[in-house]
């Protein structure tokens, strides 16, 4: 659940929050592409670290740390499976080169978590909706997406209430064998599903009452307009993309960080 914390928008007024969502999305994509392009530890660490000042400017370090913590388990799994598969495929030896590669792949995962957190934590779903609108996504899909985001915290609260209620009736989630424990989630999942269906009916009634779908010429209270700052940010993002491509394809490849040698 805490991995999702990184997707929960919190209102803020930093310069990062102000940037046009389209530019921010492009930035996230540039980070994404560069994380895929590089496989060495050094550039990936660099891409991770370069985002830290942005996180600090946006004042979202607490939420970011939370989503990193949430992603920690997955990161460990990525590291261990990589090491194990290399170990068995390369004839039961492990070099520092192998270790560095596994670390690089893990860092790549952290880079992705960070860049998505940076985007979702600083972009209000209202603005995101405008960006989707500009991209000519039909309003129905757009609305469904935004509503899903809006109800993530509501659903999380509800799940907590249900868990509390069932524990108060003697349900012990952490006792018993693996399969017994899975069965114990039925008393939690069923009310959650039924409540969601009920809620969706209520939402639909409320939408009808707010003239949803009255006209295909929907208007919008806010408009997205690129301002000077946004163009400046766009130039920076494009320069970043160009330098990433230069470093990857023209610049000589990076050397290894760890001293060469055999671990096992």
């Amino acid at each position: 659940m805490s991995l999702l914390e990184g997707l929960r928008f919190t209102r803020g007024d930093s310069p990062i929050h102000e940037i046009d969502p389209r530019v921010k999305f492009l930035f996230t994509m540039v980070i994404f592409v560069s994380a895929i392009l590089f496989t060495q530890l050094l550039p990936l660490l660099f891409i991770l670290l370069i985002q830290v000042p942005l996180v600090l400017i946006a004042k979202i370090q607490r939420e970011w740390a939370q989503s990193l913590r949430g992603g920690l388990f997955l990161a460990v799994i990525i590291l261990v499976t990589n090491l194990l598969s290399i170990y068995f495929f390369s004839g039961r030896t492990l070099t520092t080169e192998n270790l560095e590669y596994a670390l690089a792949i893990t860092v790549r995962f952290l880079v992705l978590i960070t860049s998505f957190s940076l985007f979702f934590l600083t972009t209000s779903p209202d603005k995101l909706s405008l960006a989707l609108d500009k991209a000519r996504i039909p309003f129905e899909f757009n609305f469904a997406f935004i509503t899903a985001i809006r109800f993530v915290p509501v659903l999380a609260d509800e799940a907590q209430s249900i868990i509390d209620a069932q524990r108060s009736r003697g349900l012990e989630l952490d006792k018993g064998s693996f399969f017994m424990r899975i069965r114990k989630y039925i008393p939690i999942l069923l009310p959650l599903i039924i409540n969601s269906i009920r809620r969706s009916l209520e939402l639909a009634e409320a939408m009808e009452s707010r003239a949803f779908g009255a006209t295909s010429d929907r208007t919008n209270l806010y408009e997205l307009r690129m301002r000077g700052k946004d163009y400046a940010a766009l130039v920076v993002v494009l320069l970043a993309l160009a330098s990433v491509l230069y470093v990857r394809y023209v610049f000589p490849p990076f050397g290894q960080l760890l001293p060469p040698g055999t671990l096992i």
């Binding site: 209202d126 409320a206 707010r210 009255a214 919008n220 209270l221």
Partner: peptide
């Protein structure tokens, strides 16, 4: 279950936009 937007102003606008 009848609030759709994330800010007050935008929620009041929802019906009008529709």
């Amino acid at each position: 279950n009848q609030i759709f937007a994330l800010t007050v102003e935008k929620d009041v606008a929802f019906g009008l936009e529709n």
